[in-house]
Structures are given as C-alpha cells and as structure tokens.
Design a protein around this nucleic acid. Sequence first.
DNA 1: AAGCCGGGGGA
DNA 2: TCCCCAGGCTT
Length: 242
Amino acid sequence: MPSPDALTRSDKAKLTRLSRDLVAWAANNGRLFPWRSNAATTYQKITVEVLLQRTTATAVAGIYDDFFSRFPDWDALAGASPVELEEFLRPLGLWRRRAAALIGLARYAAGTGGAFPSDANDHIAIPAVGQYVSNAILLFHHGRAAPLLDVNMARVIERAVRPRRLADIRHDPWLQAAAKWFARGATSVEVNWAVLDFAALVCKARRPVCEACPVNAYCAFFQRAKSSGVPLATLVATIERR
DNA sequence: AAGCCGGGGGA
DNA sequence: TCCCCAGGCTT
C-alpha cells in the first residue's frame, strides 16, 4: 500500500494539466510587474521576494522604483542605514523585521559578489532565506525549476487536487511533492507566475470566482461544492484536511 | 513539526 | 474588528 504522502499517477496528471491550463490563462490574464521584466536584475528578483513576503504585490509595485533607485545593488543595500531603509519599507508593513532581514541578506550577497550556493542545503545559513526564498534563488539565480510554494500556490493545488495533511505548508510531504511536480520543467518561471496571478485574481482566499474559473471542470473543490449543494461561500471557510 | 512574530490594508 | 498578504525564526 502506497504512502498517503506520495503523489499518485492521478495527482500528477491533474497537476500537469493544471500547470498547462494556468499558463494558458495567464497569457491573457496575467499581471505585469517590473520585477518580471527582462530588465530586472537577479539582485532585484531575489530582493523583491523578500519585499513581497506577508504583503501584497500591489504594495511592492508602489515602492519598487523608488526602492531600487535608492538601493540599486547588493552593495548599496548592504550599506543602507536601517532607519532610512525602514522608511522605504513602511508601506509594506513588518518594516523593522524586513529591514533587518534585507540588510543581513545584502551583506551576505555583497560578500560573495552576488553569488548564491547552488545547493539548497547551503541556503539555510543565509539571513532571510527560508524555503521560499531558497526556491526563488534556484529559480532566478540558477535557472533551475523550483516551486515558489507560498499560501497562494498551496491554496490552488489544495483546492484543485486535495488538501494537505500537515498544518505547515513547508513540512507537508504531499504538498511539497505536488508543488515540485507542478512547477517542474522548462516553463517553471511561467508556471510560478501564472499560479500567483490566478490565485490573486480568481482562486482567491475569501471569495473565489469559481464561476469564471478556467479549470473548474476538474477542480475537486468546485466539484465538491456543486455536488454537495453547499453554498460556495460556506465551503470556502473549510478546506477539510484528512 | 508546531508556535511565535509583526505591520498595513481591505472586507 | 478580523482576516489576508510571494514567510522566517525559534523551540
């Protein structure tokens, strides 16, 4: 009997279809952000992932130009005065914690000339780099496929396929495997951006727009809602774990 | 593997 | 007020 934490063939097929459909959806409905531009440097792409934590992409977009004009590279950020940096970060919330994290990360990166280890096991020692930013480093700095597994990707995968078992996204074996499979391959970046946009615009935490969802035909969450007759809004509150 | 932490903004 | 937002850190 296979482990309940293993990806089934059915899971894989569904995740593959999901990634393809969301990339297609994003081609017409995806959001445009400066940090996704070809002009964005690796420094900007990694730094912005710290800016984006526990805040909205809209808020980050609002400070993006000013921030990177004042702190254009790792050296500038590493030498920033905490007080000045905090002023830039205030609109995002968590500004004291974020300033300290950014300076720690920047000091590290400035010391290596902007290079990061290619082995994710070596990332845990780097300030402000947890599982999420580690994957961002693999994805944007090393050009490797990696899932930006945050609450958004987790929500979409859990609704479409099945809920995770553990409370913490970062420790659930099935969800980890599912995300990795979901974001595998040469289109990893596009898949990651597509699911973030889809989660923000359609598969929202509070009021998902299931009626206009491009994948509702095979979404477990929507199918369950439809067959149970329970109003969607009620079901949203309870993604049951098993 | 859980608990804790910590700020702005929208519903 | 409560909940959500591209989580990291400590235990």
